[in-house]
Design a protein around this nucleic acid. Structure first.
Lengths: 224, 224
DNA sequence: CCATAATATGACCAGGCGGTCACATTAGGA
DNA sequence: TCCTAATGTGACCGCCTGGTCATATTATGG
């Protein structure tokens, strides 16, 4: 599960770290812009000012380079989640949701290209090991919300006419789609999420989470 | 707004309808599988058993063919919406939402490839006139929900601490993401929406709309 | 200093692309 | 029947792709 998808060749490991990073950066940029199949190794080496032969000394082929990039991506996600959750593990289901959403926003702000790579993978066919890649990312959310929802349901904090997996789906879907709108401006329904001040964005998030809370809690619990 | 994006050459118009349709079908299939840039005219003519020269007698270039396909797509959407709404114009905001969702499901069932083309356009760059194309489709939903939401808000049927555009966004986002899950199995959070019986699917839709209703209505209105 | 191993290079390959065009085939009216 | 206009065809063009490899360059350590 945590195993790496692909390891670069030894030659790559021998490189000074800043060169390794610049190579990964260039590759991420290319995959973010073009997706997997349209991404061009020629374009990547052009960006880097190195020869194609060199790139093939570092990675077996295009697929290995891509999988290495995706490994970096999941590590960054993990790090961002850990950072955003640091210290406070919320017991309230919807406070947790809010936090995940903020983590997502922070991730897109910090690594917009990585998120584009992910979106491309979602909807492109013939991406190597696509299902596995997608599953790895989606699990971050599902594995996190699942237990929390179980707990909340047990405490009677979620309406019991909707099964837990459905609750998790609704929550996850809403957050996911919000992030799509944040990353892809014409999916924000004209709200201009991307150009918003942090304060306004937090208001949008809060009102959305409030809607989810009211919608998903039992009817006999008072509104906020 | 309703004008066509591109018209084929006269030669195409002179073709017998079934040939025109088979050409569009082949093109849709290719664009659905590969997106715009990766789609191959060679592959399309191979599917059809016609020569490449012929295709260029029908359309000026790849872009014109694609835009013609997209014109067909929007027409199909329009038809599906008209059909699904036939007769009953719901006065209840959330009944309307349910109906839009059902129309979306029906559309994906009837034209899965067209929906894939749309998803590809959403997340691929360098698609000709992408923003315009996306806007055309999204407007179906936004222009429909907007006035309904205005009305509902005026009647005090929506919580007044959330502005109408935000309400429309939340509703639209949830429906949109549900359809993504229906069309792209690993986006359904394990609910297996695609393989579901119609009856079960309707239950899922109903419970989701119920959540939206409870979440979006004023707190002083009783739950359903 | 030199031998050897590690790394860097870019010309080159086969194959695919969108697009063109000279030519072959067919259709229609006189 | 025959001339003309419309339609169909596929070899070909320049360009780009992922990938290879013989060769040049650099590092290393005895």
């Amino acid at each position: 599960m945590d195993t790496l998808l692909a390891q670069p060749k030894q030659t790559f490991a021998n490189l000074p770290p800043e060169k390794r990073e610049s190579i990964v950066r260039a590759a991420v940029a290319e995959f973010a812009e073009q997706g997997y199949q349209r991404a061009s190794l020629n374009s990547i080496v052009r960006r880097l000012g190195i020869s194609k032969g060199s790139l093939y000394q570092y990675f077996d082929n295009k697929e290995a380079l891509f999988l290495h990039v995706f490994d970096h991506f999941t590590q960054q996600v993990k790090r961002q989640v850990r950072e955003s959750m640091a210290g406070n593990s919320p017991n309230d289901f919807f406070v947790a949701a809010r936090q995940v959403l903020l983590a997502g926003i922070a991730f897109i702000d910090n690594h917009p290209e990585y998120f584009q790579v992910y979106l491309k993978v979602l909807f492109e066919r013939d991406v190597p090991r696509r299902e596995e890649l997608v599953a790895r990312v989606r699990l971050f959310s599902l594995e996190y919300f699942g237990p929390l929802a179980d707990l909340a349901m047990g405490q009677g904090l979620l309406r019991n006419d909707i099964p837990v997996p459905k609750v998790v789906f609704i929550l996850d879907a809403m957050l996911d789609r919000f992030l799509q709108g944040y990353a892809q401006p014409y999916l924000d329904g004209g709200l201009a999420l991307a150009g918003m001040s942090a304060a306004r964005l937090h208001e949008e998030i809060d009102s959305m989470v409030a809607v989810l809370r009211t919608g998903l809690q039992p009817s006999d619990i008072g509104d906020k």
